[in-house]
């Protein structure tokens, strides 16, 4: 992948911290009954602690770490879905978050209606969707079912359509959470080819993955998280080693 000279920074995270408070009660009754003792019914922990980094345009960066190390939280903070308690995230360019394929699908609507709805959620205008529609359907290879309600889709068809929409949203920054392994093998290869095309086009990809081989294969930078702290930030191969090491703690 071509590394650009003096590529601009597209994401800048400064001292980002996120604390989760888990209340064990939810209803009014429980709150009144436990009033004043509510501290006991709270658990809090820091999902992210003082995380800072810059990402330059065109890099593919892998966020890795053990379960519960805060990588998905970090991805959500970068995407603006969760606000940090402390610190700030600045970014520029169009961002698309692929945190779950088909998050915006409504089971009762047809594939066609969902394409329009989901592209709009991901930030495409109606005109752009009209333009890309055929290409989205071709990519998903489910043309004959496009006017069927998506609740009748097989899970494979569902993710194919969702992925097809996602890759047609022309993002500068793409956030990906464990969604690359979808569909059957030929479709997976198609997805990986698309990701590589994205890299060629200088898009920034931030991905969360548990697959060391995928990270090593795709990423040119790895950030290893452990208990909300950044424990390693650097080249992919060393990152994988650092990840293995972090498991032992």
């Amino acid at each position: 992948m071509p590394a650009l000279h003096n590529a601009p920074t597209v994401v800048r995270a400064t001292n980002v911290s996120k604390r989760f408070v888990i209340r064990k009660e939810k209803s009014l009754k429980e709150r009144i009954v436990n009033f004043g003792r509510s501290q006991k019914h709270k658990d809090d922990f820091w999902a992210l602690r003082d995380v800072s980094f810059d990402i330059t345009a065109g890099t593919t960066i892998g966020l890795v770490g053990a379960n519960g190390s805060g990588k998905s939280t970090l991805l959500k903070v970068l995407g603006g879905i969760i606000q940090p308690n402390d610190g700030k995230v600045e970014r520029r360019g169009r961002l698309a978050a692929l945190l779950e394929l088909g998050a915006g699908f409504h089971p009762d609507l047809t594939g066609r209606e969902n394409v329009y709805l989901n592209s709009s959620i991901l930030g495409l205008s109606r005109k752009q969707t009209d333009e890309y529609f055929q290409s989205i359907v071709d990519f998903s290879e489910i043309e004959e079912f496009i006017d069927t309600q998506v609740k009748f889709y097989s899970s494979g068809m569902y993710v194919r359509l969702a992925f097809a929409i996602a890759v047609h949203v022309d993002p500068d920054i793409l956030l990906v959470d464990e969604v690359l392994a979808v569909g059957d093998e030929p479709f997976q290869e198609k997805c990986m080819a698309k990701i590589r095309e994205f890299q060629q086009e200088g898009r920034t990809i931030i991905l969360v993955s548990h697959s060391a081989s995928q990270v090593e294969d795709l990423c040119d930078r790895v950030v290893v998280l452990s208990h909300g702290h950044v424990v390693f930030d650097g080249a992919a191969a060393e990152g994988i080693l650092a990840l293995r090491e972090s498991f032992e703690h």
């Binding site: 650009l4 601009p8 345009a57 520029r92 500068d172 200088g202």
Partner: peptide, 10 residues
């Protein structure tokens, strides 16, 4: 290249 154009725009 496309990547450079994008970088310049960003």
């Amino acid at each position: 290249t496309q990547a450079e154009v994008r970088a310049a725009r960003l």
